[in-house]
Design a protein around this nucleic acid. Structure first.
Lengths: 252, 252
DNA sequence: AGTTTCGCTGTACACCGTACAAGGTTCTAG
DNA sequence: CTAGAACCTTGTACGGTGTACAGCGAAACT
């Protein structure tokens, strides 16, 4: 009876991969590679040429092995992607974070944003599973611990974390689709932002979208705020909400 | 000199496609199809079998035409995906929305969530451009107009909209990765949620993630809240923040 | 020493998006 | 009325993808 091939996309198996906790049988020859070597190579390719350049053949070539040999270490490409995401996240550097919850959460959001901006391909990874790698959990732990001594309930903390991290993803994604020059057209759109605004204004001119037109007109005036400012603005907004929530919880 | 092939992934051209405003020359034979027919067919396939089943060959087969013929109507598959997203969004049904801003935004979030849950593949569409189709703009207009008569600045409105819609995406994505049974494994995980919690608890048991452990323990106790409750909880949280912001703006 | 287990290889399959050239059809310009 | 431009449609072809599968050799246990 063949040892049932613990399958691709099995959550438990993925967990073992993420935590490098796979129990290796002791029979056959030791592998020349490791999960880490494979994942690292894939990350390097993605860093250099984007996620689109990451193919099994390419990764295999880079680590000097046949394509199919990779499947000894990783059950499928999708799993490899999940692994890449965790590795690429790295560990949060909490040393410089302020002690108060507000400063802490703010730093969390900012650092996470910086990581994503440094590795834009992370946003292209189709999320196959909720975060459960060691690094992603470390980020989660860091964020939660900043709220540990506040009057928030545990449910509150999870809610805040979801909203905040979700917002970081949203904001960075938006900034990236703006700034990613459309390289396939000959024309080089220096700023998508301008094009977008122009298109939107034109569309709104039909009269069917009066509020959009109004907002666009008003926003056009002060063109000073860059993505960075938009980001901290939104984070502050969220944190204001958190502060208000704390007051509610404390009052009771 | 050949009429320069207005290119794939050209924002302007994409805009013409989205708004069905492409000026058709009058020379050659009329096409047997239309952009709408193609996009609709693609959406139907995605509805039935997910985004993965949408290939150019498959779409062509469905509308009864050769694969390459599709490229007469759509410059590339990526553009087709963008078109699908707008069509699948549909128009918001604002008739039933309350008049007050809070009720309006709440309805916006809920309706949008419902759309995404009904067509989970929409979350798999890699976003190649900011929303600028007629339907997506209609949603945007609907959301903004609920805030039109509030003391919020236009910048505020955009910020609120970004946060709120971003959160809807995040929440639905999370719920979907949970509930999408992992069909490739023989095992049918009725609820990813349980598995996830178990894995997380085990990992947290190492002692490296004390806060996660604490939160998990607390959350485990009252297992009553489903995804729906989590959603409105978070939306309410955001809207509380908006209310607070309004008070600030009004005080000045 | 025998046997099991495992890493690794090469080949093969089905499928993908789309470039390209050729053939028809329909309209406009002269 | 005719020539030719403009356009849709087709078939073929290319280079790529993820991964199933069978075979081989080396290592480690019994």
């Amino acid at each position: 009876m063949a040892a049932e091939r613990r399958g691709r996309r099995d959550p438990e198996y993925l967990m073992d991969l993420l935590w490098r906790t796979r129990s290796e049988g002791s029979r056959g020859p030791r592998g020349t590679l490791s999960v880490d070597r494979v994942v690292t190579a894939a990350v390097e390719i993605a860093d250099a040429e984007g996620l689109g350049a990451v193919s099994m053949r390419r990764v295999a070539e880079r680590v000097g092995v046949t394509t199919m040999s990779l499947y000894t270490y990783v059950p499928s490409k999708d799993d490899l992607l999940d692994l890449m995401f965790d590795v690429a996240s790295g560990r949060p550097d909490t040393a410089a974070w302020p002690d108060d919850w507000r400063g802490g959460l703010s730093a969390y959001a900012g650092d996470m944003r910086r990581v994503l901006l440094a590795r834009p391909w992370m946003l292209d990874v189709p999320i196959g599973a909720p975060p459960m790698g060691p690094n992603n959990l470390a980020w989660m732990e860091a964020a939660l611990s900043t709220m540990a001594d506040t009057p928030l309930t545990e449910d509150d903390m999870m809610g805040v974390l979801t909203i905040l991290s979700g917002h970081v993803l949203t904001e960075v994604r938006q900034q990236l689709t703006m700034s990613r020059a459309t390289p396939r057209t000959g024309v080089d759109y220096a700023d998508w932002d301008g094009v977008y605004r122009r298109l939107l204004t034109r569309a709104a001119a039909s009269g069917d979208y009066p509020t959009i037109a109004r907002v666009m007109a008003a926003v056009n005036q002060d063109d000073e705020r860059g993505p960075e400012e938009d980001f901290v603005y939104a984070v502050d907004f969220i944190l204001d909400g958190v502060a208000a929530l704390m007051r509610t919880r404390q009052a009771v």
